[in-house]
Design a protein around this nucleic acid. Structure first.
Lengths: 348, 348
DNA sequence: TGCGCATGTGCACACGTGTGCATAACGTTG
DNA sequence: CAACGTTATGCACACGTGTGCACATGCGCA
C-alpha cells in the first residue's frame, strides 16, 4: 500500500487551509455556499501545491468517467483515422477523453475490447464500420451504455447511427456520368460490406433507371479478390469483356477505382478518353493518382464529430437518431465524355 | 449519490458466497492463500452475477491505472495513424489501454492535453514528433511519469526515444542514385523539422562526399511553401534553374517528392527519364502516384510497438535508451539512370 | 496437554472525491 | 427577546478494491 506518486489531494489542501476536505471539494467545484474568501484561499493553496484532481476517484463516486470508448477496425486505414480525429476533437471540446480500441474484425480482439471498455466504465461507445456493430444489441446489454454506430454495415437495426448517404452519392455521380453522355455503364461492387454496397448499387441503378433501359444499358460486376485494389482490377477485366463495352465504371469506393485505374493503364487504355472511372469516399490517394479521381466526398471528420455529439445527446437522455450525412460530388479528371471512338462503334 | 449503473461489486459476490469481500478480492486475484474450494465457489458466483472489475477503483488503491497516454500532432496524417496503430497493438497485448490526445501543435491544446493526462493519472506517455517533445523535461516534471518520444524533433536531449535512422536512410537512397550514374543531385529540404531535416541532409551529403566533389556535384534547396506538397513543387522549380541541372532530387519526404513529381509533370518532364525523384517515409500514396515512388521505408507500426515496449521497460525501472530504427530502401520506378540527353549536354 | 506452525479467513483501514444532513453563527422579524 | 431563516462549514458515509495484521482452526510433535 505504499504510494508511488505522491500527489497532493484535497485533504492536503484542507489541512493547509484549515478547513475540512468537503469544503475544499465544494470550493473547487464552485459551490456557491462556500464564502468567497474561503474559496479564494482554497484556490490559492491548491495552485500552490500543484493540485491535480484524481479522475478515477471522481469517477468512482460520481459513476461517470467522462471517457468514451472508440472502437475501430484498424487505424492503418486513413479513412478510419480521420473519423477518429473528428471524434477526438469533439470529445476534447466537451471535456471527454477518448479510449482507443482496435478490433481488427477478429472475434478474440473484440471480446477483449468489450471487456476492457466495461472495466474502464466508459460513459458511452462509438463503433465504426465494424462487425461489432452487427451485435450492437448484445453490446448495449453487456456494457449498459449508449452506443453510436458510424457507417454501420449491419442491415435492419435502428440504433443511433451516423451514416453517409450511400444511395444519394452513388446516384449523383452516376447522373454526372450520364450527363456527360455515357449510355453503357457498369457498377463494380463489393458484397463484403453488405449495407453500403447495396445502397450504392441502388443509387447507381436509380440514376440509370431514370433514363430508362431503352436509352441506357447498365449492370453490376462482382469481381472476387483479396482487397479492394484487386477487385477493382478484376472489375476492369470483366468490363472489357462485356458487349456493349461500358464506357464508364462506377466503383464501390476509391481503392476499387484506383485498382481499376491501374489495370486500365496496364491494358494501354487512356482514362478518361477510353473509359471513365469514378470512385466513392474521396480518400487522399484519389488526389494523387493519375488522372485524379472523380469521386464522392465523405466528410469523415465531421461524421466523427456528429457521432460524438449524438452520443452526448444520448447521455443527456435524448432519444437515438439515424443521421444521414449528405455526400458531395467531387469532379476531377478520371471521368469525361465518352469518345465516339471507332472501337466503341465497332463493338456494336 | 444514486447509482446510475448498478453493477455487481466484490461485496455483492461476498454476500452471495458467504465470505468477506477481502476473500473475494484475493480469490479473484489468484491469491494462493485462499482454499481451492472457496476460490472455485467465488469464481462461480462472480461469473453468475456477471462481475466486471472496476478499473478506476483498482487504480485508486494501487496507484497504477494501466493506461498510457498517446499524444500526436494530428491523426489526419496517415503516417501518424500507423504509429498509433502500433502503440495500440502492443499496449493491448500487455493489458494496457491507450488514451488518445491530439495536440495539433497548438499551445492551448497541448496544455489541455497535459492537464487531462495528469488528471487521468496515466502510467506513462508516448509523444510523437510534436513540439511537446521539445519540452519533455517540463512534461516529465509535471506528470512525474516516464515519457517516450517517437521521431522527436528536438535536438540534444537524451530522453528515451525511438527514431528512424534518418541519416542512414538518406545516405542509402542517395548512394542508390549515385550507383545509377547520377552525378548532379539536389536535396529538397524542410527546415521546419530541424532534427530529421539535418540528419537526412547529412546522409545525403555523406553519400555524395564519398565520391568526392570533383566527381559529383550536389547542393541543398530550401523552398518555401505552406505544406510539403508546395515545397516539393518549389524545389523542382529551383532545380530547373540550376546549372548544371540536377538529374536527381532527394526529397525530405514522400509528400515533398510527390509535390515535385506533380510539378515535373506540369513542366512536361518525364520521370524518371528527364529527372529522378526519390522520397522518404514510404507512405501509401507513394505506391499509387505515377510513377510509383522510390523511397525509404519507415516501419511505423513497429516503431509504435517498440516505443510502448520501451515505456514498459521504464515502468519496470529499466534505464531509458535511444533506439535508432534502421530504414530500408524501397526501389520503385521514380528513379532511373540519368538520360545522357541532349538537354543535359547542352546545359554544360 | 501444551506448544509451534501452516493454512484460511475476516477486520479494519486506505486510496481521493462527492454529498446529505446536522450544526453553528448570524441576521431579520414579529 | 424569541422564533426563524440564511449562510457557511463539518461530520460521516459512500463509491469499489487491495492489503497488513490479527485471529481461528487444524495438525504434528514434544
Amino acid at each position: 500500500m505504499r504510494r508511488v506518486a505522491a500527489r497532493a489531494s484535497i485533504k492536503d489542501i484542507a489541512r493547509c487551509a484549515g478547513v475540512s476536505h468537503s469544503t475544499v471539494s465544494r470550493a473547487l467545484r464552485g459551490d456557491r455556499r462556500i464564502s468567497a474568501a474561503t474559496a479564494a484561499r482554497i484556490r490559492e493553496v491548491a495552485a500552490a501545491v500543484g493540485y491535480v484532481p484524481h479522475a478515477a476517484a471522481r469517477a468512482l463516486v460520481t459513476c461517470r468517467s467522462a471517457v468514451v470508448g472508440l472502437v475501430v477496425t484498424t487505424l492503418a486505414d486513413p479513412f478510419v483515422a480521420e473519423i477518429v480525429a473528428g471524434v477526438e476533437e469533439a470529445a476534447t471540446l466537451s471535456g471527454y477523453s477518448v479510449l482507443l480500441a482496435t478490433s481488427a474484425n477478429e472475434e478474440r480482439r473484440e471480446l477483449a475490447v468489450v471487456r476492457m471498455l466495461a472495466e474502464r466504465r466508459v460513459d458511452g461507445l462509438i463503433v465504426t464500420a465494424s462487425r461489432l456493430g452487427e451485435r450492437y444489441g448484445e453490446l448495449l446489454q453487456k456494457l449498459g451504455v449508449p452506443v453510436v454506430l458510424i457507417n454501420n454495415q449491419a442491415i435492419g437495426d435502428y440504433a443511433s447511427s451516423v451514416r453517409i448517404d450511400d444511395f444519394g452519392g452513388a446516384k449523383e455521380v452516376t447522373a454526372f456520368l450520364l450527363s456527360l453522355g455515357h449510355r453503357s455503364l457498369a457498377f463494380v461492387g463489393c458484397p463484403d460490406r453488405p449495407r453500403s454496397h447495396s445502397l450504392r448499387r441502388s443509387g447507381f441503378e436509380a440514376a440509370c433507371s431514370e433514363l430508362g433501359p431503352e436509352e441506357v444499358c447498365w449492370q453490376t460486376l462482382l469481381p472476387s479478390g483479396q482487397d479492394d485494389l484487386e477487385r477493382g482490377a478484376g472489375g476492369l477485366e470483366m468490363a472489357l469483356k462485356l458487349r456493349p463495352r461500358p464506357t464508364a465504371l462506377v466503383c464501390y469506393n476509391d481503392m476499387t477505382a484506383i485498382g481499376a485505374l491501374l489495370s486500365a493503364r496496364e491494358h494501354g487504355l487512356n482514362v478518361p478518353a477510353d473509359i471513365s472511372i469514378v470512385g466513392f469516399d474521396d480518400i487522399r490517394e484519389a488526389t494523387f493518382v493519375c488522372p485524379p479521381l472523380t469521386t464522392v466526398h465523405q466528410p469523415r471528420r465531421e461524421m466523427g464529430g456528429s457521432a460524438f455529439e449524438m452520443l452526448q445527446g444520448l447521455l443527456a437522455g435524448q432519444p437515438g437518431r439515424d443521421v444521414l450525412v449528405p455526400a458531395r460530388l467531387i469532379v476531377r479528371s478520371s471521368a469525361g465524355p465518352p469518345a465516339c471512338s471507332a472501337a466503341q462503334l465497332h463493338d456494336r
